[in-house]
Simulated assay, not measured.
Amino acid sequence: MINVLFAALPARWDEFAPHLRSAFDAAGLEVELRQDFAPAEVDYIVYAPNGDLQDFTPYTRCKAVLSLWAGVEQIVTNETLTQPLCRMVDPGLTQAMVEWVTGHVLRYHLGIDANLANQTTWDPVAPPLAQDRHIGILGLGALGAACGQALAQLGFNVHGWSRTEKQIEGLTCHHGDAGLHATLRRSEILTLLLPDTAATTHVLNAETLALMPKGACILNPGRGPLIDDTALLAALDSGQIAHATLDVFRVEPLPAENPYWAHPNVTVTPHIAAATRASTAAGVIAENIHRAEAGAPLHHLVDRTRGY
């Protein structure tokens, strides 16, 4: 029998437990799934960083910690966590992110906001074709690659940037500082899908925002610290950036006094771009436990030195 501890918020238990049990059965795993094991009895931990478990020291038998979140910045620096850590790469999460990004790119591309705001004047301004619209994506992991390829299939001219060199079908890929600048200079609509690490903090700042085409639009469903908020507000006020749609923030929920709420050129969405769905995430968890029990490498293993 494999003992799996569910260490997320108790409110998530009723949502996740049936799907996890079904996924374990489908994978041929004999699992006892509970919320209350003694630490020394636990083989695997299904984990969310906002739960009560913060000290992993007593979990001496634990073979892996399997996060329900795609982001691991709240756990990766925990010194008590010596077990392998896997982040969530879930097809449902990926599909949700593709839908959110594609929807907002099309909103900007087609000028939907301007049309909604102008319902009294006949002003026939047609958008360019997708092939003439330059889209940038910072971050070419599973989410960035999927979003970029979906946009490329719609005909958009998509350039992507990652810290390390990558080749992704349908995208023009860049890396390094020169590649970042080249991507920004052509990005009329830019999406941020980088992880939150020391190397990515304030990747959009006064200097990099100034590289973008005047009147560009920004989407951030990635991580709040990717953007220097003061610099973005200044760029919005000057017209360098026409509009920003922001789904993630340094402090969440976004405080009522935050200037993003009242800014006329900012759309706030409440961290909904890509939520973990129990129905699809359960299969990812079950597959990784099956792999570990068979002696195979874990999927989506976090590199502690890189922070993701």
Rank of each mutant, 00 (worst) to 15 (best):
T230E: 14
D196G: 12
L29S: 09
F16L: 06
H175A: 12
P270F: 01
V125D: 00
V125L: 13
T267S: 11
L151T: 05
A231D: 03
H202E: 13
I137T: 10
T197R: 04
P259F: 04
L106R: 09
A11E: 06
I112D: 01
V251G: 01
L53C: 10
G103E: 03
F156C: 09
S187C: 09
A231K: 06
F16T: 08
T305K: 09
A23C: 04
L116I: 15
H175S: 15
Y308A: 13
N157R: 08
Q95D: 15
W122L: 03
T230L: 12
Q95R: 15
P84M: 00
L129Y: 08
G141Y: 01
V105D: 02
V158P: 05
Q240L: 04
A242V: 15
H159D: 01
A296V: 05
L301V: 15
I189P: 03
P58N: 00
A150K: 15
E252V: 12
W100T: 12
A292Q: 07
R163E: 10
L192Y: 00
L219M: 09
D14R: 15
A27G: 12
E165F: 03
R107I: 05
W261G: 10
D196W: 06
I75Q: 12
G239C: 04
A150V: 11
A198W: 05
G144M: 04
A48F: 04
N220I: 08
T245V: 13
Q153G: 11
H174C: 09
P49A: 10
A17S: 08
Q35Y: 05
A282S: 07
A210V: 13
V42N: 00
H290M: 08
L33A: 04
D123F: 07
S238R: 11
L171Y: 00
A282L: 00
V101Y: 03
V46R: 01
C173S: 03
L93I: 12
G148A: 05
A296K: 14
A152G: 07
E30F: 10
A38Y: 11
W261C: 14
P49K: 10
L151Y: 02
F6P: 04
A262S: 15
A7V: 15
P124H: 06
K63P: 14
R306W: 12
Q83M: 11
V4I: 13
E188M: 02
E293V: 15
T120P: 07
V105W: 08
F37N: 12
V158W: 03
N78D: 12
Y260H: 07
G111A: 09
A40R: 10
E15N: 10
V268L: 09
A275E: 14
L33K: 12
T82K: 11
P18F: 02
L232W: 07
L254G: 14
N157I: 00
L226E: 06
D36C: 15
T183D: 08
L143S: 08
D36M: 05
A262P: 06
A278P: 12
V31P: 09
R87D: 02
L171E: 02
A182G: 04
A48R: 08
H202W: 03
R186V: 10
N50W: 03
A244P: 04
V101Q: 09
L180H: 01
E73C: 14
A198I: 01
L209K: 03
A206W: 06
L106K: 03
E169I: 01
R250F: 04
P195S: 10
P91R: 04
R223K: 08
H159G: 10
P253W: 00
V31W: 02
T77G: 15
M97P: 14
G239H: 06
V125I: 13
D123P: 02
R306P: 09
